[in-house]
Amino acid sequence: MTQGANLKLKTAPGVLSAAAPPADAPSISDQSLQEATTVGLTVKKQRSLWGNAWRQFRRHKLAMAGLALFIFMLLATFVGSPLYPQEIDAIDFSVSGSGISAAHPMGADSLGRDILARILWGGRISLGVGIVAALVAILLGTAIGAVAGFFGGVADSILMRLTDLFISLPQVPLLLVISFLYRDAFFRFFQDRTGSGVVGIFVLIVMVIGVLSWMPTSRLVRASFLSTKEKEFVEAAEAIGATRSSRIFRHILPNVMSPIIVAATLGVGAAIITESALSFLGLGFPSDVPTWGSMLLEAKDRVEFAPHEALFPGMMIFLTVLSINYIGDGLRDALDPRKTQ
């Protein structure tokens, strides 16, 4: 009851229904009370838009936990993997399928390779694919949505029909078919030019995931552009002679960034699951490249004798995606102006 009363005191009327969970209420009110008492005495530092969002975000405990976990995953895989002394492909049949031990903290797989080393190494691929594929999707979606929404007319109807077409494509089968048919070609092409065929597979998978998942962003950005370009401040910018590109990039785009950022965050998690699913079906990276999905594939038929081989990579996928989803949830609340106090 007291918590409810606190909440009512501190939030604006319109925010009530969407207020933060009551668990946060005491800290909110304490802080605001302090501010309320000191406001007359000290000059308050001006709050920036992003500073505000960060203050909101910090209140979302699970999102902060997610952010900490995600940063830990990034450090462990990108910094930890080169530092970790074990090799990813050192075969040692004497420890084949053995569980957790001092020498192998996550046990060893069927060939006696160190699972932790493979998880750290493969994590860079899983995280890298997730982040880059989400970026590709967001850039494509934002560009297409922005052009359609800003220019309207013929450009709009062509681009929206294109979006409709891509939404109707049978995504999962196409993803599987394209990666299967084109991976050898990409592998050879990049092996000849860069010396590493794996880069080619990376490019292929990132492109396929990105090209098959930009559509929701493009619809979202178009809708935001349509409503924002009619606002008075854009009209004012036009009146003082702002060029078209300055109106798009400096006036409209910053105002439609919030949903794009949320979509991008959630897109990283979705792309990590997609890449892992591809690898799990044996249609992703070549079998000598460990990724979390392909480690699960190898462990699948051995769960009876060596459950740790499946549990560790599976937990990595789960924890990473969970942390990203909580970050996205926190960002959604933090960037929503209706919830800002």
């Binding site: 998690g269 699951i273 892992s276 699913a277 799990f280 999905g293 699960l296 462990a299 699948k300 769960v303 499946a310 599976g314 996928i317 789960f318 995606v321 969970l322 989803n325």
Partner: peptide
Amino acid sequence: SLPTFFTGI
């Protein structure tokens, strides 16, 4: 956040 291939296992 749990992919079906992991829940299945």
